[in-house]
Design a protein around this nucleic acid. Sequence first.
DNA 1: CGCGCGGCCTAGC
DNA 2: AGCTAGGCCGCGC
Length: 110
Amino acid sequence: MENFFQKVYNLVLQIPSGKVATYGQIAFLLGSGRSARIVGWAMKAAPEDLKLPCHRVVNIQGELAPDYAFGDKSVQRTILENEGITFLKNDKINMKKHLWQGISLTSNSN
DNA sequence: CGCGCGGCCTAGC
DNA sequence: AGCTAGGCCGCGC
């Protein structure tokens, strides 16, 4: 039985390069759309050895994590750009284009 | 072991 | 567009 955190890690690890997911989406997939905050906490509590692509996890507005997440917003942005993510002029991720929809409807194997 | 708070959020006012 | 309130779980005391 995995904890909520473990579930979060599992989902986040399933996010492919060039795609991004929102905390709310992940939380929803976990069965709790309100627990998006826990997802965020899971990021900070995520062990480095998991190589959790927390940079692919952003809020629903497409904004990057606060500066204290990666130490600097530019870092996360650079990583995402390297992943193929495109940004809007307002420094937000183009959610319309890169929002991860890998699970939701297709196959709920997990 | 139990209560309390805080958090990379979200929706509502 | 900015702030408050809200539901959830892990960690600290």
